[in-house]
Simulated assay, not measured.
Amino acid sequence: MGRCSKEDFAKNKRRFYLVGAIMLVLGFVSLSMPLLASFAVETMIGCLLIAAGLGSAFGAFGAVRSGDSPWQQAFMAVISIAAGVIFLTHPLAGVMTLSMLLSAYFLIDGVTKVVEYFRIREIGGSLWILLSGLLGVALAFMMWNNVITGASMIGIMLGVDLVFSGVSFILLGRGCSNISKRI
């Protein structure tokens, strides 16, 4: 902190406030329309899969030109591009796939936490691990049993993350403001 001037803190304060406000607004939009946000996440993942596949394809092509045999890389390129195209052309299937993966994650994470609780139950505060695990298992079953809940959960999680991140950036901006006043 010794090398930062008052102007640096003031400039960063404005940036933190701006980024925090944008994230907060996007978080509330995502929470108000979680299904739409889920489809936006699914579309972004589809585009990322295609980009990763194209990158692998270019890498495989370059390896073939140099005399190597990159069949695994070429295979992964085809799989990535195909998955990305499926996500983009069949968005509902993509959201359902992501929802099932998220449900499986919650189930595995929840069961692991419940098992861990029984190993560390003598430690103070370990009850929170048990509660977190039971919540994870409950979320997994809720997502698995209700298609809309599962699909919306992606947007809800995105919204919650954006709201907390936005608040964090705004608080960092406030911290910069306080430091700039003391310098």
Rank of each mutant, 00 (worst) to 15 (best):
E7A: 12
E7R: 07
D8E: 13
F9E: 02
F9R: 08
A10W: 03
A10M: 14
R15T: 15
R15P: 02
R15F: 14
L18K: 15
L18T: 15
V19H: 05
G20L: 03
G20M: 07
A21P: 08
A21T: 12
A21V: 12
V25D: 07
L26H: 05
G27H: 03
S32L: 15
S32V: 09
M33H: 11
P34G: 04
L35S: 09
L35E: 13
A37Y: 01
F39I: 02
V41G: 02
E42M: 11
T43P: 01
I45A: 07
G46Y: 01
L49K: 01
A52T: 08
A52R: 10
G53I: 00
G53K: 02
L54I: 15
G55P: 05
S56V: 06
A57K: 03
F58H: 09
G59C: 06
G59M: 08
A60T: 04
F61P: 09
G62I: 09
V64S: 06
V64E: 09
S66E: 13
G67Q: 07
D68C: 07
P70S: 09
P70L: 09
W71T: 14
Q72N: 13
Q73Y: 06
A74W: 02
F75K: 06
M76G: 08
I79N: 08
I79K: 10
I81D: 02
A82T: 04
A83S: 09
A83Y: 09
V85R: 02
I86Q: 00
I86G: 00
F87C: 00
T89Q: 08
H90M: 04
H90A: 03
P91H: 03
A93R: 00
A93P: 00
M96F: 04
M96Y: 00
M96I: 05
T97D: 05
T97Y: 02
L98R: 08
L101M: 14
L102W: 06
S103M: 08
A104M: 13
A104I: 15
I108N: 08
V115S: 01
V115C: 01
V115R: 04
Y117D: 01
R119S: 07
R121V: 03
E122K: 10
I123T: 10
G124S: 14
G125E: 06
S126V: 06
L127Y: 13
L127S: 12
L127I: 10
L127V: 15
W128M: 13
L130R: 02
L130Y: 06
L131M: 14
S132F: 07
L135E: 02
L135G: 04
L135S: 12
G136V: 03
V137N: 04
